[in-house]
Design a protein around this nucleic acid. Sequence first.
DNA 1: TTGGCAATCTGTAACGTTTCAGTATATTGA
DNA 2: TCAATATACTGAAACGTTACAGATTGCCAA
Lengths: 348, 348
Amino acid sequence: MDRRVTKKGDDDASGKERPTLKTLAFMTGLGVTTVSRALKDAPEIGAETRRRVQLVAKQIGYRPNRAGVRLRTGKTNVISLVLNTEHELMSFVSDIIYGVTEVIADTPYHLIVTPYSRSQDPLDPVRYLVETGSADGVIISRTQPNDPRARYMLEHGIPFATHGRTDMGLVHPYHDFDNYAFAGEAVRYLAGRGRNRLALVTPPVGLTYYGHTVNGFADALSEVGASEVPFNTVSIDQSIEQIRTRTAQLMRRKDRPDGFVSSAAAATLAIVAGIEDAGLKLGRDVDVVSKQSSELLHLFRRELLVVNENFRLAGSELARAVLGWIGGKDPGSLQSLSTPSEVLPYRG
Amino acid sequence: MDRRVTKKGDDDASGKERPTLKTLAFMTGLGVTTVSRALKDAPEIGAETRRRVQLVAKQIGYRPNRAGVRLRTGKTNVISLVLNTEHELMSFVSDIIYGVTEVIADTPYHLIVTPYSRSQDPLDPVRYLVETGSADGVIISRTQPNDPRARYMLEHGIPFATHGRTDMGLVHPYHDFDNYAFAGEAVRYLAGRGRNRLALVTPPVGLTYYGHTVNGFADALSEVGASEVPFNTVSIDQSIEQIRTRTAQLMRRKDRPDGFVSSAAAATLAIVAGIEDAGLKLGRDVDVVSKQSSELLHLFRRELLVVNENFRLAGSELARAVLGWIGGKDPGSLQSLSTPSEVLPYRG
DNA sequence: TTGGCAATCTGTAACGTTTCAGTATATTGA
DNA sequence: TCAATATACTGAAACGTTACAGATTGCCAA
């Protein structure tokens, strides 16, 4: 009875509790509304009041309560990165995360990682995010020409960016590496070294950049007059062991290739192992051009020819794109394509 | 005037809006409070009512609003993984994230990644998380014997787990790989192959497992009667180039080692490159035992001797530990140590 | 003097949830 | 039979924020 309980109205500047708008209002002698507006530079607040409020806010280290903002406005200040837990490249995960965090570092945004596994429909995590309103923006990878996730997000009006392009006649932000150019450069480089029977280690079938890579490869082949040694049983998201044994089989055949173009560093390790399993020597019997995202391949074999793909940059670009869309920019203006470096031989 | 604005009370089952407790209350004819309690199996709700509410909730796909819960209770349902954007191993980032997400997949928890860079105090991100109440639990890596972050979080009562142990006489959950055992096994294995002048490529100086590794190395050296070739200028978070050139320098000396123990796969690549730069041959002139977290080293050089460290497991254990602490378990009971595999030579 | 208007500021309600303090009804003990 | 008590439910308040609809003041034109 008559127990003193914490009641509305007793606002102490005593210290230990996190400051809220109410705290600021009490300290400045203003109303909560005024403080709120002063902090976001609303026009109807007097210049001096604005400065005063912002000063006090900085002094006591006021930080808006995310839950309050989110509940009231629906804005989560969260970007979600949707990742496949089985098929993403290790370096991709690490670099893209750092790229994203670099960009959102001086914004109120947090990055959440939303995983999905082989057994799930890739649409699941996206649907979850949209249905629960868990993010203001989404980044997806492993993009397909006809991508249900992109379609779904467009329909539901949530900003997103894709790593890789789609081909549905729909406009959305993306960042992509120019794999058409990569494959072409690789073929031309190999042709320049006299290689003319080339095999392609493709990206995962079904992803958009599979098509880009295959086309770049084919177009350059006919341009330089080289021929393709079919190697369709292999793609980069197979296991190291599979790639290795199939490469070894291929290299034991009479009509073996004298050059490889590989879309990923991990696969390249397996390719080289397979080549050597067959008793052949890299650089003498066969040349390999490979994409890589870190500087490791030249430590592995100096004879390798590499093209660098910068996933950290991809992460930054994707983050910038999503934030841009959230901020109201035209999605069509938030698309970027990264041009491959030249093919780089080892230099001590 | 008299404009009809959306008002309290008009609750439509019309469809497009996300269902809330109010929606459920309306549909079941119960009060919001009752619905809330029924959903969390509170004791004072009748068995049938409970079932009815839960059924309807499932039917219409009710999901509690995170912002509502968070605002009211302070519970964020967020775990934060704090990562250094420059020094973490690539494979570490990727695997630990997947390990964590695996465990939190069937919980309401989200994973946020909180980065910090070389230039920042490692305490900064942790302080941020605590001050803004952005997470219910935190996972940190690069743990030090006297770790200010762990101390800070203990003082502020936020549950956390560390990858690696501390040595401050304070109890908290951790997961660690037994690097003392690893270094010891490595030395014994090398000794078994007749190697007796060994160099250690250490973890970053200052981290707890630096000490564990160094001690395991030293103790096993004296146990087997081998000697150490000092290689203190190198640790695994140096650049590939630095490690490589310093290794080459070392290997050109008369008193060069005939065995290496390396704490990380990336460093091992550089070590091998350095060895070969000096004109020596792996397996003949020198043996290298290395930790690795993916199966790549044997593709790189068959002569390498490897010990596997499972970062995905680490992620899972750390997540389990944090959730356990959040759930009220005794932090002292949430510590785990992972025992290294034996040293594995290549087997075709 | 008055009405109008711009410039500043303010109280209230609402976002969705949980907790507190009840209320209503049925059940029990004596 | 009556009070005590258990059972099952409920409304109101509060978490921190922003949007809405005022309120107050001062100034200027008529």
